[in-house]
Amino acid sequence: KFNKELSVAGREIVTLPNLNDPQKKAFIFSLWDDPSQSANLLAEAKKLNDAQAPK
């Protein structure tokens, strides 16, 4: 279960257009550290992506 959630969340995070590479890497490392938090980490990444969207 975690492997699928981890890969789905990881793929989504790397495609978020408004995150820079260090931010993406930080989220990916957090996913590896605790795969059970993949849904929460993906939600946080999406929030940050939205907040950094060009206005």
Rank of each mutant, 00 (worst) to 15 (best):
L6P: 04
K46G: 02
N20H: 08
A9H: 07
D33Q: 14
V8H: 11
K25Y: 14
R11H: 10
F29E: 06
K25N: 10
W32C: 14
P22E: 15
D21K: 09
S38F: 14
I28K: 01
Q23R: 01
I13C: 04
A45E: 00
E12I: 14
P54E: 08
E5D: 10
S36N: 06
P54I: 09
A39W: 08
N40A: 13
A39D: 10
K24L: 04
L42R: 03
P17M: 07
L31W: 02
K4T: 12
R11F: 12
I13R: 00
N18G: 00
Q52T: 03
A39M: 11
P22S: 15
L41V: 12
V8G: 08
K47C: 11
L41A: 03
D34K: 05
K47N: 05
T15I: 07
K4L: 09
G10M: 15
D21F: 11
E5Q: 10
G10E: 15
D21T: 10
V14Y: 13
L6T: 07
E12T: 09
A43L: 10
V8N: 12
L42S: 01
P22I: 15
L42E: 03
P35V: 04
N20E: 05
V8P: 11
L42V: 12
E5L: 12
A51E: 10
L48G: 00
L6Q: 06
V14T: 08
W32K: 03
F27I: 02
P35C: 04
N20P: 03
K1W: 15
L48H: 02
P54R: 07
A45R: 01
L19V: 01
A45I: 02
F29M: 12
F29P: 01
N3A: 12
N3F: 14
V14F: 13
N3S: 12
A53T: 08
L16A: 02
V8A: 14
N49W: 03
K55A: 11
E5G: 09
V14G: 06
F27E: 01
D34C: 13
S36K: 09
K55W: 06
I13N: 00
S30Q: 14
K24C: 10
F27R: 00
K1G: 12
I13K: 00
A39H: 09
V14K: 06
K1Y: 14
P17S: 06
P17E: 06
A39I: 08
K24Y: 03
K46F: 05
P54A: 07
I13D: 00
V14R: 10
A26C: 14
L19N: 00
G10H: 15
E44L: 12
G10I: 15
P17A: 09
Q37G: 05
A45Q: 00
D33T: 13
K4S: 12
E44T: 07
K46D: 01
A9I: 15
S38I: 15
A43C: 10
V14W: 15
P35T: 03
G10D: 04
D33H: 10
N18P: 00
L16W: 03
N40Q: 13
A45V: 00
K1N: 12
I28F: 03
E5H: 09
Q52G: 04
K25T: 10
F27H: 00
A45K: 01
F2N: 08
I28S: 03
A9F: 12
N3W: 15
I13T: 01
K25G: 05
A26Y: 14
A53P: 04
S30N: 08
S7H: 12
L31A: 02
Q23S: 02
K46Y: 09
L48N: 02
E12W: 13
E5F: 11
K24N: 02
W32Y: 12
K25S: 10
Q23G: 02
K25H: 09
N49K: 01
D50G: 06
N49A: 02
S38E: 13
N40P: 04
L31I: 08
E5C: 14
D34Q: 07
N3L: 14
R11G: 05
A26H: 11
D34V: 04
